[in-house]
């Protein structure tokens, strides 16, 4: 399948981990140019993701500062999305993907003790933001979706879904969240 990414420029932001590497690799393999910053040409695609904190626990948080540290990633992602949006609207095409945790849909999205509870909280915020961006950007061809990793998903499993949501075929799916969990997780919605 030709994802139509030839000639598109993609920026992957967030921690430099296996998810970021896999996303850059699959997007590049599909023909996209990987930008190094927001200023590196006209940005068509932005993929943002959070630090993976397996086993992070809401009840273990003892200060507002710890919550703000987690929230940093939301503010940073929304900052980049907000800066990329005007150019996308002007050109009539854009893709935003948030890679979060399926823990934001199901408490059993990961093996017992492995749930990223703090990531579930921030992913809920980002999923809502994607819904808002989908609503505001829709008329100008900008779509915004979330990929929720869980279970034993590999970075490549996640990156494949991300690439699809960045593709020319994903113009009518927007404001959506899809699980990449291998079927783990009981939550329906």
């Amino acid at each position: 399948m030709d994802l139509g990414l030839n000639g598109r420029t993609a920026l992957v932001v967030g921690p430099d981990d296996d998810i970021a590497a896999a996303c850059r690799s699959v997007l590049a393999a599909e023909g996209a140019r990987i930008a190094t910053s927001l200023d590196d040409g006209a940005i068509d695609i932005v993929v943002a993701h959070a630090t993976q904190r397996h086993g992070s626990a809401v009840m273990a948080i003892e200060s507002a500062a710890e919550w703000h540290a987690a929230w940093d990633e939301v503010v940073a992602a929304l900052d980049v999305f907000g800066r990329a949006l005007p150019g996308m609207r002007q050109r009539g095409w854009g893709r935003f993907v948030w890679v979060g945790t399926a823990g934001s849909r199901s408490l059993d999205a990961e093996a017992p003790g492995q749930l990223d509870e703090v990531g579930a909280v921030t992913s809920l915020a980002m999923r809502a933001a994607q819904k808002v961006i989908a609503s505001e950007g829709g008329p100008e061809g900008v779509v915004a979706n979330s990929v929720l990793r869980g279970g034993a998903a590999t970075a490549d499993d996640v990156a494949s879904a991300v690439a699809y949501f960045c593709s020319q075929w994903c113009g009518y799916i927007t404001g959506a969240s899809v699980d990449v969990t291998g079927g783990v997780g009981s939550g329906m919605f």
């Binding site: 009840m59 408490l107 921030t122 980002m126 819904k131």
Partner: peptide, 28 residues
Amino acid sequence: PATELPHVLPNVVRPAVAGMYRIMAARL
């Protein structure tokens, strides 16, 4: 999210509160 109204701030933050409470409920 109330996308028909200019409510982006509560739209983004309110779900995070709901999620935090949901997890607290499970743990308590």
